[in-house]
Simulated scan of single mutants.
Amino acid sequence: MKRTIMMLAAPLLLTALFSGAGCVARPPAGEKEYDVAEERQLLEIQKSRIVDQLNEMRRREQEEVRQRIESVASRGPQTITLRVDDEIVVEVWLRDMLQQQDGYPREITIPPDGRVVMPSIGEMNILGRSPEELQNDIRERLDLLLNHPTVKVRVEKHVGAKVSILGEVKMNPNRDTGPGTYEIEGETLLSSFISEAGGYTENADIRNIRVTHANGESEIMDLQRVLDGHIEENIFLNGGETVYIPEMTRLSHVIVCGHIAGPGIYPLDEGMMLSELIADAGGVARRGTERRVITVRGDRYHPKVIKSNIHRVYTRGEREEDLLLKPGDTVYVPKSYISLYEDTLRLILLPVTTVRDMYFLEDTINDD
């Protein structure tokens, strides 16, 4: 599954910035050099602010990952209670760990009365006990006889254990899979359970799968990290859990710079228009202009420049002048009286292109 994460910064590479953009090949002789220098100085200052914002976003993401890993590291499998017809295996290893005590491993299907005969111990009632309790009891009974044996109780089948799964689950009527409730046998890894239930859809946010346990406690699993090899972050299911796979809501951002009241990085809401972004950023600053707002779009190899007269949107309601924003768009509000010619724009936007090169990240994905 492909998914695009953009941690953006400033305009795209400008080698193809002006092709088809309606710009004159060179600035007029009267273009004032200090105007260009002022614009570059302004964007240099804003570049520092954008870098700080990006570093803070990255720090928060790393902190979230760290907390999630710590939570997983301190988590053990949820306790279950042995029931009639559950199938378990009891292993009793001698001190050398090379062989087991006579009569072990012992495969047991729990009878209705819960009573079973254990080699070297005798009759035991194991119904209603947790595997951990049974394991400790067997170890204590054999300790004097075998001098600190290693005992393991493994649940092969846990009867009646059911797990529900909701959300972005693939439906396959031929396999009877999709959202619903399924029985599991013994401790089951969440990644395996999702696969057996049909897998996840293309719109699934597999980085934020929520598991609510029978006791009401919830935790989040990042399935992508598990698939990437962090198997220790997988979650054990024992029955009674509800798994919810949410729809992916991309964390998208756009950048606005230049003569704007609040330059910086802004989250991109679905359906957000350029006029809304300008308003959210506090509006055009005193020396800026709404009549020639520049939006740089596309990847670093195929940049595209779009000019918009937002003044007409505000004053005349001409919606065709507005622009539906996309993830990664960088918006530049120029000075009201500076000419936007090819060489001029190259000079003005040069400081922020370095930020773009440093922070434009693609995590194996497309927005298509």
Rank of each mutant, 00 (worst) to 15 (best):
Met97Arg: 14
Arg106Gly: 07
Val159Gly: 04
Ile165Lys: 02
Thr109Trp: 01
Glu91Val: 06
Ser191Cys: 09
Ile126Gly: 02
Ile121His: 05
Val163Tyr: 09
Glu107Phe: 09
Asp113Cys: 05
Asp176His: 11
Glu91Cys: 06
Pro111Met: 05
Asn147Trp: 00
Val151Met: 03
Ser164Pro: 03
Gln135Thr: 13
Asn125Asp: 15
Gln99His: 13
Asp176Gln: 12
Lys162Leu: 06
Ser195Ile: 10
His148Trp: 02
Thr181Met: 10
Met171Ile: 12
Thr109Glu: 09
Ser120Glu: 14
Glu187Phe: 13
Leu145Met: 10
Pro149Met: 06
Gly114Phe: 01
Phe193Gly: 02
Ser192Phe: 07
Glu123Ala: 11
Leu144Lys: 11
Ala197Asp: 07
Ile126Thr: 07
Val163Met: 08
Pro149Val: 09
Leu146Pro: 08
His148Met: 05
Asn172Cys: 03
Leu127Thr: 04
Val163Thr: 03
Ile138Glu: 10
Tyr182Trp: 05
Pro149Asp: 06
Asn125Gly: 15
Gln135Lys: 12
Leu146Ser: 07
Thr181Glu: 13
Gly128Ala: 04
Pro179Ala: 10
Met118Trp: 05
Gly167Trp: 04
Arg106Pro: 07
Asp176Val: 00
Arg106His: 13
Ile108Asp: 01
Pro111Ala: 07
Leu134Glu: 11
Asp176Ser: 08
Ser130Val: 06
Asn125Gln: 14
Gln101Leu: 14
Asp143Lys: 13
Glu185Pro: 04
Asp113Pro: 07
Ala161Glu: 01
Pro112Ser: 09
Leu127Phe: 08
Gly180Thr: 03
Gly128Leu: 09
Ala197Tyr: 04
Val116Leu: 06
Asp96Arg: 13
Pro173Leu: 07
Glu91Met: 11
Val153Glu: 02
Pro173Cys: 03
Glu123Gly: 02
Met171Trp: 09
Asp113Thr: 12
Leu127Asp: 02
Gly160Ser: 02
Thr150Asp: 08
Arg154Pro: 01
Lys152Phe: 12
Pro111Leu: 05
Arg115Val: 14
Ile108Met: 00
Thr181Ala: 10
Gly186Lys: 01
Ile165Pro: 01
Ala161Asp: 05
Ile110Lys: 00
Glu133Val: 15
Arg95Phe: 12
Gly122Asn: 11
Leu94His: 00
Gly114Trp: 00
Met124Lys: 14
Asp143Gly: 09
Thr181Phe: 06
Val117Asn: 14
Phe193Ala: 10
Glu156Trp: 01
Val151His: 06
Asn172Thr: 10
Tyr104Trp: 09
Met118Phe: 15
Ser192Gln: 13
Met171Thr: 15
Ser120Tyr: 05
Val92Arg: 08
Glu183Pro: 02
Ile165Glu: 00
Glu183Cys: 00
Asp113Phe: 10
Ala161Trp: 03
Arg139Tyr: 08
Asp176Ile: 00
Gly167Ser: 10
Ser191Asn: 08
Asn174Thr: 03
Ile121Met: 08
Ala161His: 03
Arg154Leu: 11
Asn172His: 06
Lys152Trp: 07
Thr181Ser: 13
Gly114Val: 00
Val116Phe: 02
Gly160Gln: 01
Ser195Cys: 03
